[in-house]
Design a protein around this nucleic acid. Structure first.
Length: 395
RNA sequence: GGGUAGGUUGAGCAGGUGGUGAGCUCCGCUGACUGUAGAUCAGCCGUCUUCGACUGUGGGGGUUCGAUUCCCUCCCUGCCCA
């Protein structure tokens, strides 16, 4: 009936146990598990808030914990440029530097190959790029990106890759994907720390054959986890789902955690969990919060809108966050108009709390064995996927 | 009372020496944001029947084919002097 009894994945730096495997009827690939890393355990499916510059923007570490985060992402590229990975290492490593004692995953910096596209040149050995801070010239190779992450001391390092936009021509995607594979092997070969896990990244764009080839290639390497990259760009939800439906079945018997990079709207998280994803990260909830919009069951509120100025209600009645416990919509609307710094903190606390609570609800549903059946309810709580889709009424 | 500088679309301005003033920045309104060069960006922001049209340069009058511009007069504001 069920797939083979799950065998925990164990390495020197990571342990992953699927405690609730997908149902035998294949109604969903969703699963629940526990990822254990040097600085603590992570219940999956789980969302990682992003702290690019060794801080989740606008929040203190206590705020991030209060929101329910058990692991965060930090960025190799940014910390290398400023304040410098060697300085962080001298100061006792990233955890001590930012006073975050739970797990940290560092992105490899590969994403900047795309996001800072004007400033880089890719060759077989690595990427030469200009600093977005001062225009100075720098170079990342798989070996260098790995060394930087070892200096930072994150729980999870990520192999240096070359993401591409899904809309790129097939030969561009094929070329970048093949290079990502060679860089994956080099990243692994360069990796020394036994107290740091390393995840590899699948690319392949939206082409099913390339995505499948990349999945097989990355999966046969001895990584501690599998990232799925290149799906947080300009593709449609249907294209993204299709890419996941190519990759995940090929990993069905793989004991390692699966991490979909860069997705963060509640609706996207739900659909991806359904397709078998264990880990996520995204800037979205924090950025959207800083720009004035708050996620609530069934949709989102734009606190800069006039309608909130006289509203004494909480943003969300049953939310335990700092904002909802103590302040009104009217107050937050005022803070945003006045551009007061507290607005950004309160809004970010809320959106991260909402996101992490949503993940907790998904986990609870999976553990209760009612997950596929709960999809409708969870979808209505997640609300719209994007601005072009109308929010469903909350149940 | 005398002198002087002004009065432009919510605010602040630019421009305009006789030849179509709706241009900018704020404020305001709405939307977007997905491995963070983002507390950011985009659209709108006089009226209407909105791919366009109309109105608008303090009020009134005059000169002129045509006035925001030149002339007269009045009102208002800042500053200086009495």
């Amino acid at each position: 009936m069920t797939a083979a009894a799950p065998v925990p994945f164990v390495s020197t730096a990571a342990r992953f146990e699927v405690s609730v495997p997908p149902p035998a009827d294949e109604s969903t690939r969703a699963r629940a598990g526990v990822l254990t890393l040097p600085h603590g355990t992570v219940d999956t499916p789980q969302f990682m808030p992003v702290g690019t510059n060794a801080t989740v923007k606008a929040l203190s570490p206590d705020d991030v914990k209060a929101a329910g985060a058990s692991i965060i992402l930090a960025n190799t590229y940014h910390l290398y440029l400023r304040p410098g990975h060697e300085r962080i290492e001298r100061l006792g490593g990233l955890h001590r530097f930012m006073d975050w004692d739970r797990p940290i995953l560092t992105d490899s910096g590969g994403f900047q190959v795309v996001s800072l596209g004007d400033l880089r040149v890719v060759d077989e050995d690595g990427v030469t790029f200009r600093s977005h801070l001062d225009g100075s010239i720098h170079r990342f190779t798989p070996e260098h990106a790995t060394a930087v992450q070892e200096a930072l001391g994150s729980d999870v390092a990520v192999a240096f890759d070359q993401p591409v936009y899904p809309s790129s021509p097939r030969e561009v995607v094929a070329d970048a994907t093949a290079r990502t594979h060679r860089w994956a092997e080099r990243s692994l070969a360069a990796h020394r720390r036994s107290d740091q896990a390393m995840f590899g990244i699948i690319q392949g764009g939206l082409d099913p054959a390339l995505r499948a080839e990349s999945t097989r290639f990355i999966a046969q390497l001895p990584f501690d986890g599998i990232c799925i990259g290149g799906l947080a760009g300009d593709e449609t939800p249907a294209q993204r789902d299709a890419a996941l439906d190519v990759a995940i079945p090929l990993l069905a018997d793989d004991p390692r955690p699966r991490y979909l990079m860069g997705l963060g709207s509640p609706a996207d998280l739900l659909e991806a969990v359904h397709r078998g994803i264990d880990l996520f990260d995204s800037v979205l909830p924090a950025r959207v919060a800083r720009n004035g919009q708050l996620w609530v069951p069934g949709g989102r509120l734009n606190l800069r809108n006039k309608v909130h100025l006289d509203d004494p209600a909480a943003v969300q009645d049953d939310c335990p966050c700092l904002l909802c416990r103590r302040f009104s919509r009217a107050y937050l609307a005022h803070l945003f108009r006045a551009r007061e710094l507290l607005a950004y903190r309160l809004a970010t606390c809320h959106n991260l709390t909402f996101t992490l609570d949503f993940m907790a609800r998904i986990r609870a549903s999976i553990r209760a064995g009612t997950f596929p059946a709960d999809m409708a309810l969870l979808r209505s709580r997640a609300g719209r996927v994007s601005g072009s889709e109308v929010a469903e009424a909350s149940a």
